[in-house]
Amino acid sequence: MGVNLPAFQTLVDAHWRDVARLAHALAGPVDGDDVAQQAWTQALAAYPSLRSAGNLRAWLLTITHRCAMDVHRSRGRRPVPHDDPASLASVPLTDGPDATLPHEPLWALVARLPERQRHAVVLKYVGDLDHPRIALALGCSPAMSRRLVSDALATLRKELP
């Protein structure tokens, strides 16, 4: 005990954008908002029993990843609509007029990566998490996390125009 946790609002203010970005990158534009919302609800419920105030951002992103997996399982389908190139044309990746869409071909390719590679590479480069954290989220070793990320990058480099 004796953990001095910052007020939860401080976490929301500091990290809501990162949580939302990761949720959208993992779950797509349709489920992204729901996943982020669920992640915050779960984090709020669990917050007082947290044993350490260290790296709260990584804690939040790990919860976000778990929520994205849950949505995926409960829907019984791949969560990202960009996996179907046909739907990519009709479903906007973002839902705001001012949203930027850099490297749209990248996201179409990411969506076609094997599940664990896709999660690892998104946790690494959208979530900015380190390999020990990614390993924790994926239930694998840090060495495996490194390999998943480098395999994913190799595929993307090869296939990107």
């Binding site: 990158a25 839902d95 990248l106």
Partner: peptide
């Protein structure tokens, strides 16, 4: 294209339209 794509930068540039979460009142409101 000969230049290799800067993938980390491409991921970092991902900026979907996002909204802050809507949370119910909790133990303390201010």
């Amino acid at each position: 294209m000969n230049d290799p794509v800067d993938l980390p930068a491409a991921f970092a540039a991902f900026s979907p339209a996002v909204h802050p979460p809507l949370l119910p009142t909790s133990d303390v409101s201010y």
